[in-house]
């Protein structure tokens, strides 16, 4: 418990609480449960992608292709629905997961088998995936009236007062908490990022672990792709443009070290929620939504400054009398 109080997560939680209290002092409606649920739902896509990005960053990689993956999968799902309205949502969900995973695997294979730096790989696949959307759609939009009710209704359907989209975010977050803490793969993400050299000696295949991280990240991007186009009832080439950087921002604010091997799922969740709350609160407190970008930029810089400060290595203590004070 005392360890938690000193952690990044505790400080971030406090920051979020302070932010909420500040908003509530003037606009109590914002912290009404129904509104908080709405904010959470709105932040769900960011949470989903940030969770996937977290395992990628943990393994010392980065995935800049997630937003393009999301958009391509979303477009495919939307076009499938527009052409064959009868295809059940369950099939579309599976398709989205598989398509996203395959795109993640392409990234993972290039990193694993050909040893190309992840930033180069995903920069490349990002533009390729975006381009493919244009090729398959011809630049046309898929609009609400072309989509079936079942298709658009799924993420919005309410279950115990929360939409399915939010439930999926909760479910995936839960799976991540469990998977990261209690599966060998989850621990391998930390090992690979923390000390790749040592990971090899403990029988962990570094490249394969990175491949798994990219696959998970891609799978979540695909899933979010369907949920995104269904929720907003529209699909076009540029949806979620630039979203990859917001996703990375959520991770960084959540304390995931870009150097790999350090950070927690709770941190990522809090980082995403922080951005979500800021975004939703601005119109409420009557600040122009155009402030959002600058605020999240500042938050990133503050977060990384804070993380780097606290994580800085101290020199070794050689003097006997200095030992007691340290």
């Amino acid at each position: 418990m005392t360890q938690f109080l000193k952690s990044r997560e505790a400080i971030l939680s406090a920051a979020i609480l302070a932010l909420l209290m500040l908003i509530a002092s003037r606009f109590p409606a914002f912290v009404a449960p129904s509104n908080l649920a709405r904010v959470f739902t709105d932040t769900s896509p960011l949470i989903l992608l940030a969770l996937g990005q977290t395992v990628v960053i943990l393994t010392r990689c980065i995935d800049l292709s997630v937003a393009a993956n999301l958009a391509l999968t979303g477009m495919v799902c939307a076009m499938l629905n527009a052409t064959y309205p009868g295809v059940p949502v369950a099939v579309i969900l599976v398709l989205a997961l598989v398509m996203g995973a395959v795109m993640g695997m392409v990234n993972g294979l290039l990193v694993w088998k050909l040893n190309i730096p992840p930033i180069v790989v995903t920069l490349g696949t990002m533009t390729i995936y975006r381009g493919i959307i244009f090729v398959i759609s011809g630049g046309a939009w898929v609009n609400a009236h072309e989509m079936s009710h079942a298709f658009t209704g799924f993420p919005r359907a309410e279950l115990l007062g929360l939409p399915v989209l939010a439930w999926i975010a909760i479910l995936v977050t839960g799976l991540f908490f469990l998977g990261i803490a209690r599966t060998p793969l989850g621990r391998a993400f930390y090992a690979v990022g923390g000390n790749p050299h040592a990971a090899v000696y403990t029988g962990i295949d570094v490249g394969k672990t990175q491949f798994m991280a990219f696959t998970i990240s891609g799978m979540l991007a695909g899933l979010t792709g369907y949920l995104w186009v269904a929720r907003y009832s529209v699909a076009y080439v540029d949806i979620a443009g630039g979203f990859e950087l917001e996703v990375v921002a959520a991770c960084v604010i959540g304390g995931i070290s870009i150097a790999g091997g350090a950070g927690t799922i709770l941190g990522t969740l809090l980082g995403a929620l922080f951005l979500g709350i800021v975004k939703n609160a601005l119109p409420v407190v009557d600040i122009s939504p155009f402030w959002q970008l600058a605020i999240s930029g500042t938050a990133i810089i503050v977060a990384v400054a804070f993380n780097t400060r606290s994580g800085r290595n101290k020199g070794r203590i050689i003097l006997k009398r200095a030992e007691g004070h340290a």
């Binding site: 621990r187 930390y190 090992a191 923390g194 000390n195 050299h197 040592a198 990971a199 000696y201 403990t202 962990i204 091997g261 350090a262």
Partner: peptide, 14 residues
């Protein structure tokens, strides 16, 4: 060759 971010127990059993 061990892992700084993991606990003692995990380093033993990873």
């Amino acid at each position: 060759v061990l892992f700084d971010e993991l606990s003692v127990a995990e380093n033993i059993f990873i």
